[in-house]
Amino acid sequence: MPDLNFLAPVPEVVLAHNELLSPQAFGQKLKIHSKQDGMPDLQGVHVAIIGVLENRNAVNYIGEDFNLNEIRNALYKLYPGSWSTTIADLGDIYKGETVEDTYYALKETVSELVKLNIIPLVLGGSQDLTYPMYRAFDNLIPMVNIVNVDSKFDLGDLTQPIKSDSFVGKIVLEEPYNLFNYAAIGYQTYFNSQEQIDLMETLYFEAYRLGQVSNDITLVEPVMRDANIVTVDLGSMKASEVSLNQKVSPNGLDGKEICAITRYAGISNKVNALGIFEYNPSQDDDITCGLISQMIWYFVEGINNRVDDSDFKDEHIYQKFITLVDSEELIFYKSIKTGRWWIEIPFLNEINNKLKRHTLLPCMHHDYLDACNNQIPERWYKAYQKNCV
């Protein structure tokens, strides 16, 4: 049995509510960590829901506590799809004596689950909890890609202590340096200083504005296909989509878009962990809790539709296309099974780094069309530049 001692059981009030649900409901299909029965057997579990009741590093923290009971109630009463995925709700990590104690508990829990090939689905307070999720991978994979669905980049003041709006700066600056790529999805320019926008460019990170994502949600798919950790700030949602205390901006993603994004995260074969953060309960909580429960539903739906199509050793399952842009030869691969595209990034053998697994970069069909029209795809350019650093 893995060491999951930091997790407290799902509250009894939630389990009582679950008892009243239809036998076909989501909550009736879960393996649940309860006070009566203890930690469930994790054999065959694919996804583990974890609550983290930590919000002390939130920018607007004023001492309030919260729980995730209403989210669980909303999730449990949904009906699962025709899934083969086994899901467990492992309960909550409570606030430690210090925030660092909570970070340690989350880091160890995520690490243990990922070692078991279980995807942790972390529900939490402040988004700085992404940092211990990232640190959980220190000894698991050589380099990590993070996708942040947020209206802000969360780079913050790199000289200040970590906060919910500055955790990315800590990830970038703190050893060991395991971050390969950081991508921001749905950012809104007026919430980010020009210095931060310039820094994203300097670091060759990816940033997709809200308008780009809303105009073509499929832009998100190749970004998610290369992600290890996906973190969602509920502040990225437009005010009309959420409850009273959750309202941040009149502009933002709508419910359909965020569910499509979490489904893309689920479909990705590389996504090992998902975090949904910045939940702020209020009296009219039903809408936000319903939205989060549907985001989770679509994430699991995506996992059930995963297809392993990246074995490029078998030339019968892909097509290869070679184009010439200026003096650069670009090599594309298309999966015959799924129709998904990749572009090859030449690995620089003279550089002793950890990037060999990033030599194939997910892309879209239009990237190939751009290359045919003598335009270098932006994703390829940024990845190539990082490879050269």
Rank of each mutant, 00 (worst) to 15 (best):
P120L: 02
T98N: 10
G156E: 02
F180K: 01
Y177H: 15
G96T: 05
L30I: 04
S335W: 00
L348A: 15
T189S: 13
P9D: 00
F347A: 14
I141T: 10
F347I: 15
D41L: 10
G38N: 05
K31Y: 01
S282L: 09
I93P: 02
I141G: 10
S282I: 11
V147A: 12
V230K: 07
I71Y: 01
P132Q: 00
Q127N: 13
V307W: 00
N117V: 12
M133L: 04
S151Q: 14
L123Q: 01
I32K: 07
L348Q: 15
I171S: 13
K95L: 05
L361T: 07
G156L: 03
N352A: 15
I141C: 09
L7M: 08
L234M: 09
V47H: 00
G211M: 04
S22T: 11
Q188C: 04
R263L: 13
E64L: 07
D285L: 12
I50G: 05
N215M: 07
N73P: 14
D157C: 09
C372T: 10
L361A: 06
T130W: 00
T98A: 12
V149D: 07
S327M: 10
L244N: 11
T262Q: 08
Q43S: 15
H316T: 15
L219Y: 05
D226L: 08
N353K: 08
E70Q: 14
L155T: 10
Y76L: 07
I345M: 09
N73T: 14
Y79V: 15
E100L: 14
A260N: 15
A136F: 02
T218S: 15
D138C: 06
Y104G: 15
S164T: 09
G255T: 11
Q283A: 14
A371R: 01
Y131F: 05
Q24V: 14
F205G: 09
T323F: 08
N245D: 09
V300P: 01
I171L: 09
A16P: 13
K270L: 11
Y298M: 05
S240I: 12
Q319Y: 05
D101K: 06
S249Y: 04
M1K: 11
L68I: 08
E195H: 12
E70P: 15
A239Y: 03
L253K: 07
N304S: 04
A184C: 11
N60H: 13
D198V: 07
K270V: 08
A265W: 01
G96P: 08
C259D: 03
K152Q: 12
L30W: 00
C289T: 11
P176L: 00
T98R: 12
L7R: 04
Y298E: 08
Y368A: 11
V99H: 05
L173A: 15
M237D: 12
V230F: 09
L75K: 01
I336R: 02
A227H: 04
F332L: 04
L244Y: 10
S82I: 13
G186L: 01
A74P: 10
D309L: 07
E100I: 14
N117F: 09
Q194V: 09
T102Y: 00
E344C: 13
D285Q: 14
A48N: 08
R379S: 06
H366C: 10
D254I: 06
D226I: 05
P346E: 02
I343M: 10
P250Q: 01
N373I: 05
L75A: 07
E201M: 02
I171A: 14
D308N: 12
Y190W: 08
N353G: 13
G51F: 00
S111Q: 13
Y61G: 06
